[in-house]
Amino acid sequence: MELSLTTRTVAEHTVLEVGGEVDVYTAPRLRERLIELVDAGARDVVVDLERVDFLDSTGLGVLVGALKRLRTAHGTFGLVCAKEPLLKIFRITALDQVFPIFPTVDAATERDGSGPAS
């Protein structure tokens, strides 16, 4: 399934809803969108992965890049993911210790929920 990207605002957070497959072919589009959002002034960014069917190392690299970018801009960055196959990918790569990961968008957008991008 092709990559889909939709942005909305929830509780002063910019929520980027990602759907489909994030791989070596589609990840550059995700990277561009995240850079655009930060360049446009978004500082509290949440990436919702609930509709993602496939995520590989290239996609993970893009998410780490966004985390670093927001950290430099004194913003926050969080992920929404409750799917076990995707959570396993974060555990195996130890990236579950790098990203704040929330089960729902509501949990990720609570004012004190996402914390600093560290």
């Binding site: 590989d56 190392s57 290239t58 993970l60 690299g61 990918i89 195996i92 790569t93 130890a94 990236l95």
Partner: peptide, 8 residues
């Protein structure tokens, strides 16, 4: 990406 890919 290379490191993460190998970890996977």
């Amino acid at each position: 990406t290379t490191g993460v890919g190998f970890a996977l």
